[in-house]
Simulated assay, not measured.
Amino acid sequence: MKKSHEMVHHCLYFTANSLGRAMTRLAEEAFRPTGLSPSHAFVLMLAAEEPGIGPGELAERLALAPSTVTRFVDALVLKGLLSRTAEGRAARLAATPAGLALLKGVEQAWKRLHAAYLDVLGPESDRLARELDEACRKLEGRAEA
């Protein structure tokens, strides 16, 4: 049994999932005051930074399935934080005035999240994030040349 226990702690699959769950808990706590999940908040931020962005571009940037992004967008439109306009078959997104007003709280939430994991992991957390991103890109065949 000890061998299996040790194997779990040296397995990238299990450790990455465990890290994901721990980060999700930290992020949800940091974003609770905004009334948004961290993923919804990131969609709102991107739409505010790039009015007219399409759901496909969002899915690519967030490394999420298009159907997941569509659910996030639908929820944000329903809350009155995003507007969606059709251009032929394409949809274009932009933050509404209510969405723009929420951005300061969203930015504060990102700062709270960063401070929370920096407090636990230290200054190496930024390097860890870069290395995890690089590993994801390699595993998905998107490594930059």
Score class of each variant (00 low, 15 high):
residue 63 A to S: 09
residue 67 S to H: 15
residue 40 H to V: 02
residue 66 P to A: 09
residue 27 A to K: 10
residue 31 F to K: 00
residue 38 P to R: 03
residue 54 G to K: 10
residue 31 F to M: 00
residue 44 L to A: 05
residue 51 P to E: 13
residue 50 E to Y: 02
residue 50 E to Q: 07
residue 44 L to T: 03
residue 59 A to Q: 09
residue 39 S to E: 08
residue 68 T to F: 05
residue 53 I to M: 02
residue 47 A to P: 11
residue 65 A to C: 12
residue 36 L to P: 02
residue 70 T to D: 05
residue 49 E to I: 09
residue 39 S to K: 02
residue 72 F to E: 13
residue 68 T to L: 07
residue 45 M to H: 06
residue 71 R to D: 01
residue 29 E to V: 01
residue 68 T to S: 12
residue 37 S to D: 06
residue 65 A to D: 15
residue 77 V to H: 06
residue 24 T to M: 09
residue 59 A to I: 06
residue 54 G to M: 09
residue 48 A to S: 14
residue 68 T to H: 12
residue 19 L to V: 09
residue 26 L to V: 10
residue 60 E to T: 08
residue 34 T to E: 01
residue 36 L to K: 04
residue 61 R to F: 03
residue 38 P to W: 04
residue 48 A to T: 07
residue 21 R to L: 12
residue 48 A to V: 08
residue 41 A to N: 00
residue 74 D to R: 07
residue 55 P to E: 07
residue 73 V to L: 12
residue 35 G to I: 12
residue 21 R to M: 11
residue 21 R to Y: 11
residue 27 A to C: 08
residue 26 L to E: 04
residue 25 R to E: 07
residue 31 F to I: 00
residue 28 E to F: 03
residue 33 P to V: 15
residue 17 N to A: 00
residue 17 N to S: 00
residue 28 E to M: 07
residue 47 A to I: 10
residue 33 P to F: 15
residue 54 G to R: 13
residue 60 E to H: 09
residue 29 E to I: 01
residue 49 E to N: 13
residue 44 L to G: 03
residue 72 F to C: 02
residue 20 G to W: 05
residue 39 S to A: 10
residue 20 G to C: 05
residue 72 F to M: 13
residue 65 A to L: 13
residue 67 S to F: 15
residue 63 A to P: 00
residue 35 G to Y: 12
residue 60 E to G: 04
residue 37 S to M: 04
residue 72 F to N: 06
residue 28 E to Y: 04
residue 76 L to W: 13
residue 29 E to T: 03
residue 29 E to C: 00
residue 52 G to A: 14
residue 27 A to D: 05
residue 55 P to H: 02
residue 19 L to K: 07
residue 48 A to Q: 07
residue 60 E to K: 11
